[in-house]
């Protein structure tokens, strides 16, 4: 693991146990385990830290370039850390025809960031998602996994306030 810099070693040391447990549940060289390992890594860190990708590469005997290819292919994976609350705006058809765009605009102006960015205080990351499958409640936004449905742009401030109060 000569490729790792000091800060990544610290990062690993802090999370050692969880990550080691993760790797133990798959056998070395088990190539089909790549996506589940990436999913679980993201479950632990909220994103895919570079050092873990190198470890995964060594463990599964898959070149790190290929892993990067897989990680960037699927929408689920993020290579940058996310805010405490992930705000997902559904951009599915039903949400779209019921004004999902306006809700996204309201969120962008309220948070002062564009989709894909994180607020400076690290509280929110804004993103769009193809369809959350909750079309009957369109338009839908999830904040940290909680669903908020049948939204109008004016509801946004109230919803965000709830999470700020929690902090």
């Amino acid at each position: 693991m000569g490729k790792l810099c000091n800060c990544s070693r610290d990062l690993l040391a802090n999370q050692d146990r969880e990550i080691q447990k993760l790797f133990r549940s798959y056998s070395p060289g088990e190539k089909e385990a790549l996506i589940p390992i990436l999913q679980e890594t993201q479950g632990i860190y909220g994103y895919l830290p570079k050092p873990i990708l190198y470890i995964t590469s060594e463990y599964l005997k898959i070149p790190v370039g290929k892993i990067y290819g897989v990680a960037t292919f699927y929408n689920q994976f993020r290579l940058q850390p996310v805010g405490k609350y992930l705000v997902q705006v559904c951009a599915g058809t039903a949400c779209h025809v019921r004004g999902g765009d306006l809700v996204l605009q309201a969120l962008e102006s309220e948070l002062g960031i564009k989709s894909g960015q994180t607020t400076q205080d690290g509280l929110y990351t804004l993103s769009t998602v193809a369809c959350l499958g909750a079309c009957s409640m369109a338009p839908v936004v999830t904040v940290g996994g909680d669903f908020h449905g049948r939204l109008q742009p004016k509801d946004i401030v109230k919803i965000l306030r709830e999470y700020e109060i929690k902090e």
Partner: peptide, 22 residues
């Protein structure tokens, strides 16, 4: 569990995804 790629609804793409590939 899929990882968010619409094209994986196509059967050969889905199989590639199970095998851990793009």
């Amino acid at each position: 569990e899929g990882a968010g790629a619409f094209v994986c609804g196509e059967e050969t793409a889905l199989i590639a995804s199970i095998e851990g590939k793009r």
